[in-house]
């Protein structure tokens, strides 16, 4: 297990390094950064002055090393638009996104896994059909439309929930439902498929032959093996949510990182975009690492690999 963890960690660090190179080079792929900052009406001299001021005229590798060196210390420079340190800016937005993603993931798991289990226990029954319908709707409904419908319904027609903002926990209910519902179908279908496969396994028959209680057979012997693929997918979904759902955060006026990313791209606020890409990617790296460890804990056969 220790060797396995070490290998995964090295892999994660390599991925993180690659991402840092990519997100740094974005600045230059998008065109001349000096010209972008100077604006359309700037003269060549002004652009040249900005180039030397920001250090864009120096070798790229040197700029990269400086950037990484500062980034490791938590310094991503100043936002061109807000004029404040990027780190401070992102940190102020993260709690909103974390709350939303965490609650949406919890919502998706609490809804998806039990529904998948029940659907697998009674395949092709009415319960299975209902679960399938919910899944299809979840995948087919555009989330902005679903969000607007919820706002109309519970924000205005039956005004029991605040339609926008992020001041209290009530503000997070509707965004959680919309974002979580979007992730539910894949988790549910995976759980169902996994359960169906596992329930016909020989070791389930062995467990029943031991006279174990049905709940022991189901939760101890079946579910643990069935959720192994679900964990990996849930990690990716969670990464997606942490990246901030731009649509959801915009519709509900939640000022999280997704909304910030959208604003910064529009304003060509390069330091902020760079930092956000790095942060989002690192979320994925960390989540993949955690889900690898989780899978190894669930399935001892992985630990030797």
């Amino acid at each position: 297990m220790l060797v396995y963890t070490g290998k995964r960690l090295v892999l994660a660090l390599l991925v993180a390094f690659t991402i840092s190179v990519l997100s740094f080079s974005l600045l230059f792929l998008a065109g001349d950064p000096a010209a972008a900052i100077a604006g359309e009406t700037a003269t060549d001299q002004e652009i040249e002055r900005i180039r030397t001021m920001f250090g864009f005229d120096r070798p790229i590798w040197l700029q990269y090393l400086e950037w990484v060196g500062r980034a490791i210390q938590g310094d991503f420079g100043r936002s061109y638009y807000f004029g404040m340190p990027v780190t401070e800016l992102i940190l102020s937005r993260i709690p909103v996104t974390l709350t939303l993603a965490g609650s949406a993931m919890a919502f998706a798991l609490i809804l998806g896994i039990p529904m998948g289990v029940i659907a697998a226990l009674y395949p092709n029954s009415i319960i299975d059909r209902v679960a399938l319908t919910i899944a299809v709707c979840g995948q087919a409904l555009p989330s902005f439309w679903f969000a607007l419908m919820l706002i109309v319904l519970f924000g205005f027609m039956i005004p029991i929930l605040p339609p926008s903002g992020s001041e209290s926990w009530q503000h997070f209910i509707m965004p959680t439902v919309v974002l979580g519902y979007y992730a539910t179908p894949s988790l549910m279908r995976l759980t169902r498929t996994g359960m169906l496969e596992v329930l016909s396994a020989d070791y389930i028959r062995t467990a029943r032959a031991k006279g174990l209680f049905p709940r022991t057979v189901l939760f101890k012997h079946a579910l643990r093996n069935a959720v192994i693929p679900v964990v990996s997918v849930a990690a990716v979904e969670f990464g997606f949510m942490l990246g901030g759902s731009i649509v959801i955060e915009t519709v509900f006026a939640l000022h999280g990182t997704g909304y910030l990313a959208w604003e910064s791209i529009r304003r060509a606020d390069f330091p902020t975009v760079q930092a956000l890409i790095l942060v989002f990617s690192l979320f994925y790296v960390v989540l993949t690492f955690v889900s690898d460890l989780l899978n190894a804990w669930l399935d001892p056969r992985i630990r030797v690999a």
Partner: peptide, 24 residues
């Protein structure tokens, strides 16, 4: 019946490779 299975009467299956739960 479950009270009797594994207690008074036990079974050994054909496939030892797949009859044990890999997770425990």
């Amino acid at each position: 019946m479950a009270d009797i299975r594994g207690s008074r009467m036990a079974m050994i299956f054909q496939e030892p490779m797949t009859s044990l739960n890999p997770a425990y």
